[in-house]
C-alpha cells in the first residue's frame, strides 16, 4: 500500500522520488517554526501508530493514512512529520523499505501539501469567523481526507506502473482498496476538524495564513 517495500520499484523511480523528497524536506525544514514542532511531533506519532491498525479490504489490507489531516493542520511541517514517521515505521515495523523511503514520503507528502494549499486557507478564513460553522468544517475536513487518499493512491499506482508493474492488476487493487479507504479517511478527518473547530478554533488559524497558502 502506501508502504512500498524494497525490491518492487525500479531505480529511476527510486532516485527521482528520493531527489524530490529531499528537496521538499529542505524547503519544509527551512519554513519550520518552533511553535509548529510539538504539533508536528504529535501528528507524526499518530501517523506512526495508525499504520498498525489495518483492516482487510478487497484483496489487500488498509489503514488510515492521516496525510490529509496533517496537510490541513501542519502545512509544510507535514513533510518532515511524514518523513520521520515513515523512517521509524520502516526501522521498527518493517513497513516499507529504506531505499523506497523517498518515494513513499513523496506519495504521502505531496497530497498533504496540495491539501494545505487548496483547503487550509479556506479553513483558516472560516476559523476566523465569529460563528464558525460545524458543517462546513466537516466538509472541508472530509474533502481533505478524500482528496489526499485518492491522490496518494494515484501516485502509488503511478510509481508501480512506471516501475514496470502490470497496469491493470495494480489499478484494480488500488481502486478496490483506496476508494473505500478515502471515504473512511474523509469521515475521520472531517470529524477531527469539526471537533477542533468546536473546542479550539484558534488552533486552525495558528499562523494566520502566513505560509499555508
Amino acid at each position: 500500500m502506501a508502504h512500498i517495500p524494497d525490491g518492487v520499484l525500479s531505480a529511476p523511480v527510486l532516485i527521482s522520488g528520493a531527489l524530490v523528497s529531499t528537496g521538499l524536506l529542505g524547503v519544509a525544514l527551512r519554513r519550520l517554526r518552533e511553535a509548529e514542532l510539538p504539533q508536528a511531533a504529535v501528528l507524526a506519532a499518530a501517523f506512526f501508530v495508525a499504520s498498525l491498525i489495518s483492516v482487510p479490504l478487497g484483496p489487500s489490507s488498509v489503514h488510515l493514512l492521516l496525510n490529509g489531516l496533517m496537510g490541513l493542520l501542519l502545512g509544510w511541517a507535514a513533510v518532515p512529520a511524514i518523513f520521520v514517521a515513515l523512517l521509524l515505521q520502516a526501522v521498527f515495523f518493517g513497513f516499507g523499505g529504506l531505499l523506497v523511503l523517498g518515494v513513499n514520503t513523496l506519495n504521502l507528502a505531496l497530497p498533504a501539501l496540495l491539501v494545505a494549499r487548496l483547503l487550509r486557507p479556506m479553513l483558516q478564513r472560516m476559523a476566523e469567523l465569529s460563528s464558525p460553522q460545524q458543517r462546513r468544517a466537516l466538509m472541508i475536513g472530509g474533502t481533505a481526507g478524500v482528496l489526499a487518499v485518492l491522490l496518494t493512491g494515484l501516485m502509488l499506482a503511478a510509481s508501480l506502473v512506471l516501475s514496470g508493474e502490470a497496469f491493470w492488476p495494480a489499478a484494480r487493487v488500488i481502486v478496490l482498496s483506496f476508494i473505500p479507504l478515502a471515504l473512511i479517511e474523509g469521515l475521520v478527518t472531517g470529524i477531527v476538524v469539526a471537533f477542533l473547530l468546536r473546542v479550539e478554533p484558534a488552533l486552525l488559524r495558528l499562523d494566520g495564513g502566513r505560509h499555508g497558502a
Binding site: 504529535v42 498498525l52 489495518s54 483492516v55 482487510p56 493542520l73 515495523f93 513497513f95 477531527v192
Partner: peptide, 24 residues
C-alpha cells in the same frame, strides 16, 4: 493540540492493542 493529539494517540494505541489485526 498536544492534548488533543495525545488523546488521539492514546485512542489509536488502545485500538491497536485491542484489535486482532495489528499489522500491515
Amino acid at each position: 493540540t498536544s492534548r488533543l493529539g495525545a488523546r488521539l494517540l492514546c485512542g489509536l494505541v488502545l485500538l491497536m492493542l485491542a484489535s486482532p489485526s495489528v499489522a500491515h
